[in-house]
């Protein structure tokens, strides 16, 4: 187990470096530069700028510096948000995005697992069909359509909930963004749970559990769910990668000062240190989460040994 974790962590570092190098390469290969704008810059100022940001050095020196920054987890200073280090921006925006993503995934898990289990228990009933059709709708309805429609209904017509803006952790402002973000995952998780549970409910050990006279509740909650949720657990890794993309959209719709908003602005502003910092940070956290999921897998399914 310990060896497994160590091996995975060792693989993680080059993976992060590869993603970041790809991003860095893209930024550098693109025509133009961050200081080129509509106004022409005098050559003397351009020379000073290049010196200040180390652009006059050969590319491998710049690349090495970038990698070194990542290794020691210090991503330098933002180009556009003057005087702010990338780390301080990360520290400020991460709680917003993390709250949003975490709550959304929790909601998706709760609703998805419940709906999927009920659908599996009542297979081929009207309840099963309607919840699966609803799940399909959830998969097909893009979150940037769902979000504004929810805003239109609940904020602009009924005046129940605030339409946009970040309002701290326990606040009404979170309800609509969290629902918007979690809809797709809810739908996926419901479908995965349903198919997983259907498979498990036919297994011999469930028949044994029923035969020894356990209540249906105990059979489902204590025995079947554990096996039936395996597909959901293995979906967590890919889901996380998509959750981040979803957060970008939701933050844009609801004007949240989160990681996604800053990432988009950084891309538009060619704010290289900030882009690299966010990409590196996201890659590291995604890979670490995947590792945690794999470890959790081992606990849930005792057949898996590392």
């Amino acid at each position: 187990m310990f060896g497994f974790i160590l091996r995975r962590l060792i693989v993680t570092i080059p993976m992060v470096i590869i993603v970041v190098s790809l991003t860095w390469g893209l930024i550098r290969l693109a025509p133009g530069n961050f200081y080129t704008g509509e106004k022409k810059i005098p050559p003397a100022i351009e020379k000073n700028l290049r010196e200040k940001y180390g652009l006059d050095k050969p590319w491998y020196v710049q690349y090495g510096k970038m990698v070194w920054n990542i290794v020691r987890l210090d991503f330098g200073t933002s180009l556009k948000y003057e005087g702010q280090s990338v780390n301080s921006i990360l520290a400020r925006t991460l709680p917003v995005s993390a709250t949003l993503g975490f709550l959304a995934y929790l909601l998706a898990l709760f609703v998805g697992v419940t709906a999927g289990t009920i659908a599996a228990l009542k297979q081929n009933s009207r309840l099963d069909y309607s919840s699966m059709a609803l799940a399909m709708l959830g998969i097909s309805l893009p979150n940037f359509v769902l979000g504004p429609i929810l805003v239109l209904i609940f904020s602009l017509t009924l005046y129940w909930l605030p339409p946009t803006r970040w309002g701290g952790f326990p606040s009404l402002n979170l309800i609509l963004p969290v629902i918007t973000l979690s809809a797709v995952y809810m739908a996926y998780i419901a479908r995965l749970t349903r198919s997983g549970m259907l498979e498990v409910l036919r297994a011999d050990y469930i028949r044994t559990a029923r035969a020894k006279g356990l209540s249906e509740k105990a059979v489902v909650l204590r025995h079947a769910l554990r096996g039936g949720l395996m597909p959901v657990v293995s979906y967590t890794g890919p889901a996380l990668a998509f959750l981040i993309a979803g957060t970008v959209v939701v933050e844009r719709i609801f004007v949240y000062p989160g990681l996604g908003t800053y990432f988009l602005n950084a891309c538009l502003n060619r704010d290289e240190p900030l882009i690299i910092g966010i990409v590196a940070f996201i890659s590291i956290s995604v890979l670490i989460f995947n590792l945690l999921v794999d470890i959790a897998y081992g606990f849930i399914d005792p057949r898996i040994r590392y």
Binding site: L26, I27, P238, A241, A245, F263, V279, I282, V286
Partner: peptide, 12 residues
């Protein structure tokens, strides 16, 4: 599978 490649696509 587990990489946030959409982020790289946005940069691209």
């Amino acid at each position: 599978y587990s990489l946030p490649y959409l982020i790289v696509v946005v940069v691209l």
